[in-house]
């Protein structure tokens, strides 16, 4: 992995993943809306051994900018070996329930912009006939829950989109990896009380790197979430509605 594009580069999981690829000859292109934070991430990656880090302080959620963002990334990196889409935001479910506008906004951040960028990146990877697209989805997309179905719906659409995309690109040199983390202790989940199921972003990053090496199509992180979600998915609706999940 020599040329790496990261969208939402100041997110905790993106940073932890980028750190695992820092070595001589690696060229990063980081997209994120806050320049000050991107600068901090850049210095960190350079000090850890990255060769070159270019910044693009624009908002990945601004859909009209997506095309030019990916164009600039292509120009800067040339070929893209690895693209990671990691931006997102945990919406306030209660606020979304009360406001269609807030719901649409949450879907734009967590789904529409992700699908928009994935489409554009997929074109590019298809052209070069190689490369890996990694997208952070979530276990939250595996089933609708009363407590966060807006975020869940966004992630569910991302997962379904990526599944289809990976079938379309089957047979080309391009691989698509859907990452479904469970509970991760990051600034995004600051307000949650953390129990024993919670994981550090560094652990998720190691799982992502391994999934890339093994070319997995869907990866639950940590691994036990695959089994938790398998159980959750088979619970009948009549029982599920009585569980306060």
């Amino acid at each position: 992995m020599k040329k790496i594009l990261i969208i939402g580069a100041s997110s905790a999981i993106a940073q932890a993943t980028a750190r695992l690829y820092c070595k001589e000859g690696v060229h990063f292109y980081l997209i994120g809306r806050n320049e000050e934070k991107l600068e901090i991430v850049k210095d960190d990656l350079i000090t850890r051994g990255a060769e070159q880090v270019d910044l693009d302080a624009t908002n990945p959620v601004s859909l009209e900018e997506n095309e030019s963002q990916i164009k600039r990334a292509r120009q800067s990196l040339g070929e893209i070996d690895l693209a990671l889409i990691a931006h997102g935001d945990l919406p306030d479910q209660k606020e979304c329930e009360a406001s269609a506008r807030k719901t649409i906004k949450a879907l734009t951040i967590n789904s529409v912009s992700v699908i928009s960028l994935a489409t554009l990146i997929a074109h590019h990877l298809e052209e070069q006939n190689k490369g890996t697209l990694v997208v952070l989805s979530s276990v939250a997309g595996d089933r609708g829950r009363a407590s966060n179905y807006v975020y869940g719906a966004a992630k569910s659409s991302v997962s379904t989109f990526l599944e289809g995309l990976s079938y379309r690109l089957n047979g080309t040199g391009v691989s698509v990896i859907t990452v479904k983390p469970g509970f991760v202790d990051t600034p995004m989940t600051e307000e949650f009380e953390k129990g024993w199921l919670w994981t550090q972003p560094e652990t998720i990053a190691l799982g992502i790197k391994k999934a890339i090496e093994k070319q997995k199509s869907v990866v639950y992180l940590p691994w036990f979430w695959r089994w938790i979600m398998r159980v959750i998915k088979i619970i009948p609706r009549t029982i599920f509605k009585r569980l306060s999940l």
């Binding site: 905790a12 901090i40 991430v41 210095d43 960190d44 350079i46 000090t47 850890r48 600034p187």
Partner: peptide, 9 residues
């Protein structure tokens, strides 16, 4: 814990 960046060497 989030102040875990290196700045320069």
């Amino acid at each position: 814990r989030s102040l875990n960046h290196l700045i320069s060497f």
